[in-house]
Structure formats: C-alpha cells, structure tokens
C-alpha cells in the first residue's frame, strides 16, 4: 500500500523575503464554507453563536476567537477556519469542506501594502481596510481573499492550484518594490 504524504499548497515555494516583505505559508487548520439555506440566515447566526461563540460576519468583516476564525467570504457565504464545524450548523446551512482547496499565505513587513498594491485593486489603507477586514478581490488575474491580521500583516488566499502563480506574482512585486528603494 502506498504511503501518501500530505503536502501543503506552497511546499517548497515559501518562505521568501524582499522589498521589506516576508511571505510565509499559513496552515489555518480545517476550512469549511458555510452558506445559509434561504430564510435560515437568522437561525444560523444563533446556531453559530451557540456552537462556536462567534457571530455571522457582516460583509467585509471577520471575527477570531482562539484558533477559530470566521471570514465573510462572499454573497451569503462565510468561511470557518481553525475548527471543524459543529454538526448543528448543518440544520441551517450547507457546509462544504474547503480544507484542501485554498493556499493561504501571510505577507508581512513594512512594504506589504506597496507589494499588494501592485497585485490587487483593493483599497488597503487603514480607513478602508482595518485589522480584521476581509475582502474578496482580484490578485493579478486570480480570485482571491485578503484578510488583514495585523497592522502590516495580511493573509492572501487563492485556489490551491494557483499557489505557484501567487508566489511568483508576489516575488515579482517584491522585486519591483525593492528596486524602487
């Protein structure tokens, strides 16, 4: 019987550094998409509070509690990371395991916003995108999610199959920022 070895999406690609920025891979633990059934939004919010102690995230928001993080992840859609969802949630929402679907990297350092500004049209300034803010947007040509976890630290998520492209695009942007001194 073959021994299968789990590889993270960015295995062998990260960490990288340059332009005042460091990029590392993040293992967020279990990831589950939560999409409320029609008309069940309110009861789902209550069930989520009872099961995991967090509320349903408003558009563009996230909430963290220990290892658990819940991200607004699009129209009528959130992503629960760090813990497996309690089964009670399935009475109110479609739950889909996304654990092997996303590459998650942390981009941090003084030049982070300059690097990301080369890759996404999102307004990442403090007023528009404070710590905890979460957005779906474009990173180069890829559908991405961006989460601000600290003052100069952002998480960028793309589909797992695009991990190598994401690292490449980050590297090119970091070189560009570094070249401008």
């Amino acid at each position: 019987m073959a021994e299968l070895v789990a590889r993270t999406p960015c295995a062998g690609l990260l960490p990288i550094a340059g332009g005042g920025v460091r990029v590392t891979e993040v293992d967020p633990g279990p990831m589950t998409a939560i999409a409320p059934f029609r008309g069940k939004e309110k009861t789902l919010a209550g069930a989520l509070k009872r099961a995991h102690g967090v509320g349903w995230p408003a558009p563009g928001q996230s909430e963290a509690s220990g290892d658990l993080r819940i991200l607004w992840f699009g129209h009528s859609h959130a992503l629960l990371t760090g813990v497996a969802p309690k089964p009670t949630l399935a009475n109110h929402a479609a739950l889909t395991d996304q654990g092997d679907a996303w590459a998650v990297v942390q981009v941090e350092g003084a030049g982070t916003r300059d690097v990301l500004a080369r890759l996404t049209p999102l307004d990442l300034r403090d007023g528009a995108f404070p710590v905890g803010a979460c957005a779906r947007s474009e990173v180069q040509h890829m559908q991405a999610a961006i989460l601000r976890v600290a003052g100069d630290a952002y998480r960028v998520m793309v589909f797992r199959s695009m991990a190598r492209t994401l690292v490449h695009d980050l590297q090119v942007a970091m070189r560009g920022v570094a070249a401008r001194g």
């Binding site: 558009p59 699009g74 129209h75 859609h77 957005a135 779906r136 947007s137 474009e138 559908q143």
Partner: peptide, 8 residues
C-alpha cells in the same frame, strides 16, 4: 457579475 468579488 462581481465574479472577482462577492459573486453577486
């Protein structure tokens, strides 16, 4: 279609 955003 806000395909690169929220999907609406």
């Amino acid at each position: 279609f806000h395909g690169m955003g929220c999907g609406a």
